[in-house]
Structure formats: structure tokens, C-alpha cells
Deep mutational scan, measured.
Amino acid sequence: MDETGKELVLALYDYQEKSPREVTMKKGDILTLLNSTNKDWWKVEVKITVNGKTYERQGAVPAAYVKKL
């Protein structure tokens, strides 16, 4: 869990989004888990830093590609 009490997951593999509802992640990324009720796809929040600014993006990733921490 992070400092706000939200559950975290670890990306076990790289994943490139294939639709606007998904998010890209790299192996080793730590993501915030938002919903894991679907056994195949979990909704997560990814933090992306671009030019020193951090953005948050929500989307789905394959459940088999992440592990709860």
C-alpha cells in the first residue's frame, strides 16, 4: 500500500497499450491498483513524468502482467 492506503501492484512485464482504455507500463513499474474485480484486466493508475511534470493516467492492464505488493 502507498501512503494514502491504496493498494500497489508491480509490473512483471512490459505492456504497450492497444486502445485508449489501456495504459502502457514497463517491467518494474509500481502502479496504483484502482479495481481488480475483473479477473483478466485490472484498472490501474500510472504516474508519467514528462519534462519534469508528473501526470496521472488511469487505464486497464492485463492482470497476469502485474502482481499485488
Score class of each variant (00 low, 15 high):
T4W: 12
W41C: 06
D40Q: 11
G28I: 03
P62V: 05
V61Y: 02
K47I: 12
A63P: 07
S19T: 10
N35E: 15
A64C: 15
P62Q: 03
S36W: 07
Q58E: 08
T37Y: 09
T32P: 12
I48R: 07
Q16I: 14
K53D: 10
Q16P: 05
V23D: 02
E22M: 05
L34R: 02
K43S: 12
P20E: 13
E45Y: 06
G28N: 05
V46R: 08
N38T: 06
P62H: 04
P62C: 08
L8P: 03
A11G: 03
M25F: 11
A63S: 12
D14T: 05
W42R: 00
Y13G: 04
A11I: 05
T49S: 10
L69A: 03
T49D: 09
M1P: 13
L8D: 03
L8R: 11
R57Y: 07
D14L: 04
K27E: 05
D40M: 11
D14K: 02
A64R: 14
N38M: 07
D29C: 08
Y15V: 01
L12S: 02
G28W: 04
A64Y: 09
T4K: 13
V50Q: 09
K47Q: 12
V9K: 02
T49W: 09
A60D: 15
Y13V: 11
A63Y: 03
T37A: 12
V66I: 07
G52Y: 03
Y15N: 01
V66L: 15
E3S: 12
W42C: 05
Y65H: 07
K18T: 11
L33E: 00
I48W: 12
Y55H: 09
K68S: 06
T4P: 13
E56Q: 14
V23T: 04
K67C: 15
E22W: 03
N51S: 09
G28E: 02
Y65Q: 05
E3N: 14
L69I: 13
K67Q: 13
Q16M: 12
L12T: 02
K43M: 15
V9P: 01
R57A: 07
M25N: 01
T24L: 02
A63R: 08
K67E: 14
L31W: 02
T37W: 07
K6M: 11
W41F: 06
K43H: 15
V66A: 00
E45N: 08
T24P: 06
A11E: 03
V9F: 03
G28C: 07
S19I: 04
V46N: 03
W42S: 00
V46S: 06
T4H: 13
K53R: 12
L31M: 12
N51F: 08
Y65K: 07
K18N: 09
E56V: 15
V66T: 01
D2R: 14
L8G: 01
S19C: 10
M25R: 02
L31G: 04
E17Y: 03
K53I: 14
M1I: 13
K67H: 09
N51Y: 06
